[in-house]
């Protein structure tokens, strides 16, 4: 089974472009416009190894989404992809004990950095 990635972001343009780039890397990419949608799909059996999650989402927050997905699928790796400022993100993540997660800041002006991170997970396996 190929490696699959789920991208959660409330901006369609972000989803489209990330998906395009990663698909060109021959990765299997799913997208979700909200935390709720992401959880629904995973709950329905969608199997992904990595989730790229935006923090500020309409509805359920990115953090809540991560915590819930982790409950459903504990093996999942998470990457945070956010447009919010570094410091405040770090504080929030620390508070909920997620500060060990890799954070990629929007805009990702160098996509290859994200790709190598993803690669690292696969190689690790």
């Amino acid at each position: 089974m190929p490696e699959a990635i789920l991208i959660v972001d409330d901006e369609q343009g972000v989803l489209d472009n990330l998906a395009t780039y990663l698909e060109d890397e021959d990765l299997v990419v799913y997208t979700a416009r909200s935390g709720e949608e992401a959880i629904r799909r995973i709950d329905a059996g969608l199997n992904v190894q990595i989730c790229i999650v935006d923090l500020r989402l309409r509805g359920m927050s990115g953090i809540e989404t991560i915590v819930k997905i982790r409950n459903l699928a504990p093996q999942t790796h998470f990457i945070i992809h956010t447009g919010s400022e570094d410091k405040s993100v770090a504080t929030v993540l620390q508070r909920v004990g997620l500060d060990n997660l890799p954070v990629f800041r929007k805009p990702l002006t160098n996509m290859s950095a994200l790709v190598s991170k993803l690669q690292a997970y696969y190689d690790h396996k």
Partner: peptide
Amino acid sequence: MAHEINNPLSVISVGCQN
């Protein structure tokens, strides 16, 4: 606003790379 602006910037930037 940072968040809101970074989203379209993201589209521009990743779009360029694509």
